[in-house]
Design a protein around this nucleic acid. Sequence first.
DNA 1: AACGTGAGCAACCGCATCAGA
DNA 2: TTCTGATGCGGTTGCTCACGT
Length: 319
Amino acid sequence: MGRPPCCDKEGVKKGPWTPEEDLVLVSYVQEHGPGNWRAVPGNTGLLRCSKSCRLRWTNYLRPGIRRGGFSDHEDRLIVHLQALLGNRWAAIASYLPDRTDNDVKNYWNTHLKKKLLLQHQQRQRASTAAASSLPSPSKGQWELKLQTDIDLARRALRDALSVDAAAGPPGMAAAGSAPTAAPAQPYAPTARSVDGMLLDGWAAAPAAGRSCAVVGGTVIPAPAPATPPGATDSTSGSSSVLTTECSGSISSASNKRAAPPVAAGHRLLLVHEENSTSAGQGEVPLSAIESWLLEDAGGEQKLPHESLLLDAALHNFGF
DNA sequence: AACGTGAGCAACCGCATCAGA
DNA sequence: TTCTGATGCGGTTGCTCACGT
């Protein structure tokens, strides 16, 4: 039952990508645009399976990807979205336009989970100490109400996610994290990177507001045709705006698939202006849900009901 | 200097779902 | 409607590097 894995074929290379392979792949995608991954190995001569090519592109070579250096704002956003959405990393990543689901997932597993656990333990110790000294209002009425609100919101989201709105074309989940106008920040070159290697004509600085790929610290501007079919095109037009509208339900092709905020027919607004000066780290314009999640508390982006969402996040991971 | 260990992250794997024939 | 190929997603693995002994 089921098809054999595409990577079972003999002669298919596995393991880390070499800088040369990266260049071949980027070059191909620059020319043909992402998609039709099945054809990539054959057309490029890469000894990789289509899946591997797609993964390499979406997680590493795609323009506009920011790596590492998660801000506090991003931390909190991830924690809260995780509490609401569970391990729907693609959906979560779609709220962080320059992050990949893999990156978010790794960051959660390696940093945030521990951080949350630590906070949780500290809170428990604190509440235990408080309980022993005070006739504690362990969970005040307002807090219980908030918990109810959270539960309702989560249920609503879950329901919404299970509705097949059939709105978004395939591949839109990834489009939710479509390249933004913010130029890709060169990551620190690694031993595997192709630092210093340039393709002819690629060395030019990317035009303003244009996507670009980064290969080993080299910024490679993306040509217009590189936009995936069906994806919101943030590379075309001078004032392109990523707009997500969700009408009552966050569309999802299934309850497993990520809810792509970019799918048509959504009411939730996720506006990402290409030329916005606030496109910097952690300053993406807020959608309704983000505003709710990140409700300002005293000027700084202090999250509401933090302990409750913390609980939810921990609960999602069986803590 | 050599070795052990743990963290971080890139990549793989299996499964689910979609789209087209 | 069913089948099949292509693609997307989440869980997991395994490699690399930093750090401690």
